[in-house]
Nucleic acid binder design. Sequence first.
DNA 1: GCCAACGTTGGC
DNA 2: GCCAACGTTGGC
Length: 156
Amino acid sequence: MNYWLLKTEPEVFSLDDLKAAGREHWDGVRNYQARNFIRDEMKVGDGVLIYHSRTQPIGIVGEARVASEPYPDPTQFNADEKYYDPKSPADNPRWFVVDIEYVDHFPKVLPLADLKQTPGLEKMVLTQKGSRLSVQPVRPDEWTIVQRLAGRADKA
DNA sequence: GCCAACGTTGGC
DNA sequence: GCCAACGTTGGC
């Protein structure tokens, strides 16, 4: 079992939106490194941290889990979609999604500024300067620290 | 809203 | 295949 962190702008799609939907495909990833994690490594049941960017405060807001095998991102084939990619062949799709299932909100947001100060998270992709990766692997020890910070000893 | 960091595109 | 120009991300 692997752990991941997914970034989203809550103005576009928030953890509240995921809660309301229960389950949703995580579309619009248009970065090859992120694509490779989704397509090649994500498995049903993997743990997911949801991170809100470009808001106040920015930080990890809760938890979800991977709920499907990877499959081609339907938005890449639709010319009406923001994420339409005319260069993606239907017989060899360029972009992939997985379904993400809501688990819960953390009791409080874990702000990025705090995570950067937390011992053990120095190597976390999220805390690296200039890291824009929207789909990030999280190490098990980092997952444990984050759960503990969130006040959830049961999951840590 | 600014702009540094980063990724992608395309002319050559 | 280099790299300048351009576009995007996302903290601040």
